[in-house]
């Protein structure tokens, strides 16, 4: 089973290329190696999930890709171009929706802000924001302030902001870790829907194994820190997914078991020191 899940079909010119990525945080005691050696490509239009045990440096990885953190070593390329700062065609949805939306602006203005900064004319800005809010089923909430909305709704606003920005690549950093289970299922379907409608590339970081299998076309399993790619799995589930039916497919169970085992193995290796901690 390992062999067939590991093979990734070849794509020409990956949208995102990560090769030999290494990240060491400078600390008083010499440095903390969060990421040791990561290599993977994400082809255009793929919805890839990154999953790993706690402390696997998933957020670090995402911040490096987003151009928010400088890397220590390795290659990071978007469309073959080196990532040195936040790329223009990339948007990020953060886990902390309450802190990522600006509480001093209405929902509408939050969604419009990146467009305004990019110099999009007012009328178009309005239209794109309204359209994006409609796509996340929040057409009526535009005049409200983010803090007047529930957590799930706030995260939908953050997604609408990213959608209105029309990025080629959307990074999502455990976006649903802080919402309740029902909302979470809805938001997962929302992400699938938007991915299909817009045809963009999505890199979705999560620590939830079920979520990664349900959402992704592919699951990249990370080891514990210092992080390497533990496994890279193609999710061969039907493209039309459904919370109930998909999750009860035998193949879903197989895949989730596989990912689960990989993560357990990653944790065990970290503990026994099969991969030295430093």
């Amino acid at each position: 089973m390992r062999a067939d899940t590991k093979s990734i079909p070849a794509f020409d010119g990956p949208m995102l290329q990560v090769a030999g990525l290494r990240k060491i945080y400078p600390t008083a005691t010499g440095g903390f190696e969060a990421i040791r050696n990561l290599t993977f490509d994400v082809p255009a239009g793929q919805l890839a999930c990154i999953v790993g045990p706690s402390g696997a440096g998933k957020t670090t990885l995402l911040k490096c890709i987003a151009g928010l953190l400088p890397r220590t070593e390795g290659v990071l390329e978007l469309h073959g171009k080196d990532i040195t700062g936040p790329p223009k065609t990339m948007a990020v949805v953060f886990q902390e929706y309450g802190r990522s939306l600006f509480p001093w602006m209405t929902v509408e203005r939050n969604v419009e802000l990146p467009l305004k900064a990019a110099g999009v004319p007012k009328a178009e800005r309005r239209a794109r924001a309204a359209e994006a809010l409609e796509q996340v089923d929040l057409a009526d909430a535009g005049g409200k302030y983010p803090w007047q909305l529930s957590g799930g709704m706030q995260q939908r606003v953050a997604i609408a902001r990213a959608v209105a920005y029309r990025p080629e690549v959307l990074l999502m950093d455990e976006p649903f870790a802080a919402v309740d289970a029902q909302t979470r299922a809805d938001l997962e379907d929302l992400v699938r829907r938007i991915w299909k409608e817009l045809g963009i590339t999505i890199l979705f970081v999560t620590h939830d194994i079920d979520e990664s299998v349900y959402l992704g076309e592919r699951v990249i399993v990370l080891s514990a820190a210092p992080t390497v790619v533990q496994d890279d799995i193609l999710v061969d589930l039907p493209a039309d997914r459904d919370q109930l039916r998909t999750r009860s497919l035998p193949r879903f169970a197989e895949l989730r078991t596989h990912v689960f085992e990989e993560i357990q193995r990653a944790k065990a290796e970290a503990k026994t020191g099969a991969i030295p901690a430093r």
Partner: peptide
């Protein structure tokens, strides 16, 4: 100023005067 808000501004390339007006001052 909140780190996530700053990161948000950075990813959406909200800079200069826009950043001052929409992030720094209100925050």
């Amino acid at each position: 100023t909140d780190e996530v808000q700053r990161d948000t501004c950075a990813t959406y390339r909200i800079r200069g005067l826009n950043r001052l007006r929409y992030l720094t001052l209100p925050a």
